[in-house]
Nucleic acid binder design. Structure first.
Lengths: 217, 217
DNA sequence: GAAGGAGTCAACACGGTGTCGAAGAACGGC
DNA sequence: GCCGTTCTTCGACACCGTGTTGACTCCTTC
C-alpha cells in the first residue's frame, strides 16, 4: 500500500519527477476523469478509459498515477481545498447574527460540492473501496467536526446557546447529516431533499439542535 | 439485469426451483457470507470464497444465486424484515409520552442493525456498486421516511409539535442522519459517536428538530 | 557522439467474473 | 428393475480489468 500521504493539494500523489510535457498529460488525465465521472459512476470507468481519454496507453497512465484511486484523491484534494477556502472566507467575514453565520457555513459547503457534484458522488462511492480515500475523508471530516464543535462551545460560552448534548457528539451527528443529505440530493438515488430547499432544511435542524433548549416530555 | 423483485424475504432472489438438500446449500452460502463479512469487507470476498465456504464449487454457487450481490440482497431482506418487525412492535405498544415513543423507535433500528453490524457495513458498501442494492435500500428508506413524516404530522395535528419545516423534508434529513451516524458508529472508520451515546444523541436532535419552536435570531 | 534520464508501449502474469456442456445422482412411471 | 427426465454438480473456457516488465525512442547535455 503506497502513497499514504495527504499533505499539499495536488502534490506528490502520483510518481512523476517533474518534466515539461508530462504536466500536460497529468492534467489531461485529471480532466478526463472529471469529464467521465459526469457521465458514469467510478466503477464503470477503467484505467484504460482514463488513459485513452488522455491520449496515452494504459501502462503510461501508471507512469503518472499509481492507480485509479490516486486520480480521485488528487481531484478530491482540490475540492477539499476549495471548500476550506470558502469556509475560511465565512469565518473571516463578521456574520449578521448567529443564524446568518451558520447559514453561510452550510451554504459554503453546499455550493462547493454542488459545483463538483460528479466528484462528490464518486468520492462517496470510492470511500467504500479505497482505504486511502477513506483515510483522507476521515481527516477532512474530523476538521469540520472540530470547527463545528468549537463554534457550538463558543455560542454556549457567550450564553447564546443553552447547554445540551456534548458538543463534539452533536457536531459529529450534524456533520454526518449534512454529508448524507447532500449526497442524496446530488446523486438523486433514493428519497432526497429538493436541491433548492436543502440548505434551509439543514439549517433549521442545526439551529434547533444547537439553540433549542431541553424538550419537555 | 435479472431479478428486480423484492417481495417476500428470502424468496425468489436466486434462481433455484425448490428442492430438498438444495435448501441446505443455500443456507450454507448465506451463513458463509455473514461469517466472512464479519472478518473482511465485501470487496475482499470473492464468489469462490463463498462457494468454498459452503463446500461447493464456484459454478455451483451460480446455481443458487445469480451473483455475490444477490446473496447480500437476500441477507438484507432478512434484516430489513427484522427491523420492520421491531418497528411494528414499537407502534403496537402505547408509548409513555412522546419522548418515549421516538426513543423506542430509534432504539429499535439501533438494536436491529447493531445485531448485524457486519451486514450493515457491507450493505452501505454494496450500495455504491450494485443497482439492486441501491434500489432495495431506496424502497426501505422511503418507507421509514413516510412513517416518520406521518408521525410528525400527527404530532403537529394534535398540537404537541409546532409547525415548522415540511414534514417530509424533515423526515428525510433526520432519517439520513440516523443512517449515516449509525454506519459511522458501527464501521468505526472516521469520527463517530460512541456506541453507548448514539441513541441519546440522535434522539436529542430529533426532539429539538420536531418539537423545538422557531429559533429567534 | 555517448551517457543518461524521461516518456512510451506491447506483451505478460494474475485474479476475478460469469457461462457452457457434459457427467452424475434421484426419482417417478411403467 | 430399467428408462427417461429433471435436478445438481463441476471442469474448462472466454472475457475483462489490473498492475508490471523490459525494451525502445527521444531529448538533453556535456
Amino acid at each position: 500500500m503506497p502513497t499514504a500521504t495527504g499533505k499539499l493539494p495536488g502534490a506528490g500523489r502520483g510518481r512523476r519527477a517533474a518534466r515539461p510535457s508530462g504536466d500536460d498529460r497529468e492534467l489531461a488525465i485529471l480532466a478526463t476523469a472529471e469529464r467521465l465521472l459526469a457521465e458514469r459512476p467510478l466503477a464503470a470507468i477503467s484505467v484504460d478509459d482514463l488513459a485513452r481519454g488522455a491520449g496515452i496507453s494504459r501502462p503510461t497512465f501508471y507512469f503518472y498515477f499509481s492507480s485509479k484511486d490516486a486520480v480521485l484523491l488528487a481531484l478530491l484534494d482540490r475540492v477539499v481545498a476549495e471548500a476550506d477556502a470558502a469556509m475560511r472566507r465565512v469565518f473571516g467575514t463578521p456574520a449578521a447574527g448567529a443564524r446568518d453565520g451558520w447559514a453561510r457555513a452550510i451554504a459554503a459547503y453546499y455550493d462547493t460540492f454542488r459545483a463538483h457534484r460528479a466528484l462528490t458522488v464518486a468520492w462517496a462511492q470510492a470511500r467504500s473501496t479505497s482505504d486511502e480515500v477513506r483515510a483522507l475523508w476521515a481527516v477532512v471530516f474530523e476538521r469540520w467536526v472540530r470547527q463545528c464543535a468549537d463554534a457550538v462551545d463558543a455560542e454556549r460560552a457567550r450564553g447564546a446557546a443553552p447547554p445540551g448534548l456534548p458538543s463534539r457528539e452533536l457536531a459529529v451527528a450534524l456533520t454526518s447529516m449534512n454529508e448524507r443529505v447532500l449526497y442524496a440530493t446530488f446523486s438523486g438515488d433514493g428519497p432526497a431533499v429538493a436541491e433548492e430547499d436543502v440548505v434551509d432544511v439543514l439549517l433549521g435542524i442545526w439551529l434547533s439542535a444547537i439553540y433549542g433548549g431541553p424538550i419537555p416530555d
